[in-house]
């Protein structure tokens, strides 16, 4: 009988440690499928973060390095400069990328490093247990903002895609989500496009995925999907923020 579907070979058979309803598993698979479809698994090197995805190297069935907190874009820079012909990606959460690693992501983007960053934005610190993230929404509860984030006390969330889109270095920036089947399809298109642009050597590519953290949000997986739709996406609108391939076509 003909095989009509099989699991991507770009993921290992190790069982994921992520919580039910967490988006990491979906995004891992989308990245893996894209690399496999592009026949780039053999050339891929992933820079994995500190945070829930610190063990992503156990799941990605290609070369990987565990980076210091927030420094994945710098480490990726070092790797890509040594191996300009390889596919180098960073996979980072919001604490890693938008808090401790803000400097590194901004400058990797500004330099136009030819790497792809997958940014998982779920508005909370997952691994350490629900502390406030730089992307925690106003009013959203966290273990370090128990009454909910108060911008007067805790400051305001960062919209990273919009920030990076002001720079000249990035070639492609899109914010997606994976809370509906249609969004998953669009997310895969965005990741594929980012990787293809990297392969063409056109510049820095960035895909932000508005994600879920049911455990630390204190919601069921289904309610968490609804929270993404009702609260997260209004603050973090989906769409393409920069695409130099489209600009060239104009």
């Amino acid at each position: 009988m003909a095989v009509v579907f099989e699991k991507t070979k770009a993921l290992t058979d190790v069982k994921l440690h992520y919580c039910p309803g967490c988006a990491h598993g979906i995004v891992h698979r989308l990245v893996a499928e894209c690399l496999e479809e592009m026949d780039e698994v053999k050339n891929a090197i992933a820079c994995v973060p500190v945070g829930c995805a610190v063990f992503a190297n156990n799941y990605f069935n290609f070369d990987a390095i565990q980076c210091a907190h927030g420094r994945a874009p710098a480490t990726a820079t070092g790797i890509k400069r040594v191996h300009p012909d390889k596919m180098v990606l960073t996979y980072q959460g919001d604490g890693d990328l938008a808090s401790i690693g803000t400097c590194e992501i901004v400058h990797a983007a500004a330099r136009g490093e030819k790497v792809t960053t997958i940014f998982i934005n779920n508005g909370i610190y997952g691994m350490t247990g629900g502390q406030m993230a730089p992307t925690t929404l106003p009013g959203m509860k966290a273990t370090t903002a128990k009454a909910g984030r108060d911008p007067k006390i805790n400051g305001n969330p960062l919209r990273v895609s919009e920030m990076l889109a002001t720079l000249t270095g990035p070639a492609y920036i899109e914010r997606v989500s994976v809370s509906t089947p249609a969004q998953v399809t669009q997310a895969k298109k965005a990741i594929k496009k980012a990787l293809e642009i990297q392969k063409q050597g056109l510049g820095f590519t960035f895909v932000e995925v508005v994600s879920t953290c049911p455990t630390n949000w204190g919601l069921t997986p289904v309610k968490a999907m609804e929270f993404v739709r009702d609260k997260m996406i209004p603050y973090y609108p989906l769409g393409v923020f920069k695409d130099i391939t489209a600009e060239e076509g104009k």
Partner: peptide
């Protein structure tokens, strides 16, 4: 900080 982490990447490569 970034420089030494670039070193980390290049050394790993």
């Amino acid at each position: 900080v970034a420089a030494i982490n670039m070193v980390y990447g290049a050394a790993a490569a």
